[in-house]
C-alpha cells in the first residue's frame, strides 16, 4: 500500500514537476550510482533538491534511496513524519545528539543494507545558490565504508525556483552536473576538502547569469 502511494507520488507529482514544470539539463548522468550501497552528495538550496536527485535515478532504485534529513525539521508532527519517512523515505538524523548516541547509526544500517544515501554536506539550505561550509558526517561514512562510492553533484536553479522561505514555485530550468565518484579508500584525512573541490569544479562548469 505504502509502496503504491509512494510510486503514485513520484510518478504523478514529483517527476512531472521536476521534468516538465522545471526541466533539467543533466551532464554526467552516467556517473550516478547504478546500485547500492552508494552515497550521493550535493549542494543544498531547496526542499526540492532531494526530490530532483531521486527523480534522476531509475524507478527500480526508488525504494532503496534514502535522503538523510534533519529529524528536528522533518519529524515534526505525525503527518509530516509519516510523509517524510514513508513516502519520501528520508533517513532522519539528529542535528544535536545526546551524549553517547552516534547520530550516523541509521546511515551505517542503510549502507550495510545496500541502500543509496543522499547527503547534503552543507547541512542546511542556507542562502540561495551559495555554498556553506561542509560538515563532517559524509567524511566519517567514507572512512568507515572506504569502498562505497561517493558521487559529487552540483545543482543550480532550485535556489531560484523554490528557495528557502518561499512557498511559490516559479519555473526555472535546473542545471545538474554529476562528477565521477570518490572513494574513502583513495583519500587520506582530507576527504571533505577533496569532495568540496570536486563539487566546486563541477560548479565552475556552470555559466550562471545573475545580478544578485
Amino acid at each position: 500500500m505504502i509502496g503504491i502511494l509512494r510510486w503514485l507520488f513520484f510518478t504523478l507529482l514529483v517527476r512531472p514537476v521536476v521534468g516538465i514544470v522545471l526541466g533539467m539539463n543533466v551532464r554526467g548522468r552516467e556517473h550516478l550510482p547504478k546500485t547500492g550501497p552508494a552515497i550521493i552528495t550535493a549542494n543544498h538550496n531547496s526542499h526540492l533538491d532531494a526530490m530532483v536527485l531521486m527523480s534522476l535515478l531509475p524507478h527500480r532504485l526508488l525504494h532503496r534511496v534514502r535522503p538523510v534529513a534533519a529529524a528536528d525539521y522533518f519529524m515534526k508532527g505525525r503527518f509530516l513524519s509519516w510523509f517524510s519517512t514513508k513516502i519520501i523515505g528520508i533517513l532522519p538524523i539528529a542535528r544535536k545528539s545526546g551524549a553517547g548516541d552516534d547520530p550516523l547509526a541509521g546511515c551505517y544500517e542503510a549502507l550495510e543494507a545496500g541502500e543509496i544515501l543522499i547527503i547534503f554536506p552543507e547541512g542546511s539550505r542556507g542562502e540561495p545558490e551559495r555554498m556553506a561550509p561542509f560538515r563532517g558526517g559524509v567524511a566519517k561514512l567514507a572512512r568507515l565504508y572506504p569502498d562505497v562510492p561517493v558521487a559529487p553533484v552540483f545543482m543550480h536553479g532550485l535556489g531560484k525556483a523554490l528557495p528557502r522561505g518561499e512557498g511559490l514555485l516559479v519555473p526555472f530550468m535546473l542545471d545538474i552536473y554529476v562528477g565521477p565518484s570518490l572513494h574513502g579508500r583513495d583519500e587520506d584525512d582530507d576527504f571533505l576538502v577533496t569532495l568540496r573541490e570536486k563539487i566546486e569544479v563541477l560548479a565552475s562548469q556552470h555559466h550562471a547569469a545573475s545580478w544578485d
Binding site: 526541466g23 540561495p128 536553479g157 531560484k160 528557495p163 518561499e166 511559490l168 516559479v170 519555473p171 526555472f172 530550468m173 547569469a209 545573475s210 545580478w211 544578485d212
Partner: peptide, 21 residues
C-alpha cells in the same frame, strides 16, 4: 522558461516572473 533560465534575473523578481508566466 528556457529564456528566463538563460538571462540574468533578480531574486526580487521571482513573483514578477510568475505573473509573466
Amino acid at each position: 522558461k528556457e529564456y528566463f533560465s538563460l538571462v540574468p534575473t533578480r531574486r526580487a523578481d521571482r513573483r514578477v516572473l510568475f505573473w509573466a508566466y
